[in-house]
Amino acid sequence: MSPLGSMRVQRWTPLSVGSVAVSVAVLVLLAFGPALFSPNVIDKLTTLFIYVLLAITWNALAGYGGLVSIGQQAFFGLGAYAAVRLTHAGMSVYPALILAAILVAAVSVPLSAFMLRLRAGEFAIGMWVVAELLHLLVNLDGLIQGETGTSLIALDAYSAVARRALTYWTALGSMTVLLVLLLVLLRSPTGAAIQAIRDSEEAAASVGVRVLTTKRVIFVVAAFGAALAGALWLSTTITFQPKTYFSVQWTAYMIFMVLVGGLGTFEGPIIGAVIFFLVGTWFGADGVWYLIGLGATALVFALFLPRGLWGWVDTRFGLRLLPVGYRVVAGREPPAVPAIQTPHIRS
């Protein structure tokens, strides 16, 4: 009836098919890491995977969901704490890391009922308060011995070589699962609804988005990711001291990675994590100057590249490596369903 029939929605482009194929190839190659790389490289890559996990989940929460939290260390610390508790109860270490994250995600559901009623700055600071509260509660546990902390003694069951490889694989697997989970979530209609809430909560509700339910999905996924990162971090450092894990520096790192890479883009935080990792590798030993350098870098980005590296690429070239968005294009394929001729009510 009209040229409308020739319009269609494109999600995959040759570029995004290629990027996903390359990403899969890289992940498969990384899976053989313990056979290919030196122990030092394995340790470094494990750290990088945890950084990516932190960056992509904070970006999902803040960049896509508009829920800027400076209290994600609550879940990071709780994840590590739960892993300590589970292994103390006799559970094998690596399954305990995963189960710890699942338990923390379950805890975040009732927590969301309170926190998601807060808006903007109130939510951001409120999450920090939650982190401090959880920190104090964990300190009360006799097993932890206050700020003295404890160790993941159960790791002694593994040889150094096996431990290094298992931790590496668990981190790689966790990062991959979260990447896929977020890609699927953000590509779905729920992903569109999440972004709508970020841009205008009232308008989103007025077009039928169930605001609280939708926010809860992203809040719980972000809690799960941070908890998983915390549990994995524990398996790399072995010691658990509450003030280290419940420190706001973890959220500061997440913010740094996401702002430098590109808030609200899928690719950006991964790039941000790589940059943060490289900077830490090269300058991390420089103590105070390293932190000053991080702060200065964040400042320069905020001033001159407010949408981060990938945000700049996106604005400038319209490049999308991963197929999260929608493009309407003219095409020969017929539409999947006939055009709506009449409304669904009365004739």
Binding site: V9, P189, A192, A193, Q195, A196, R198, D199, S200, E202, A203, A204, V207, G208, V209, R210, G264, G325, Y326, R327, V328, P335, A336, V337
Partner: peptide, 26 residues
């Protein structure tokens, strides 16, 4: 009150899947 970080199409698509209850193709 547009969803300013999304494309025009994505604005309408969100309405169609949320309030409109439509499946993807519809």
């Amino acid at each position: 009150r547009p969803f300013s970080g999304m494309t025009v199409f994505e604005n309408v698509f969100t309405a169609a899947t949320s309030g409109g209850g439509a499946g993807r193709d519809e």
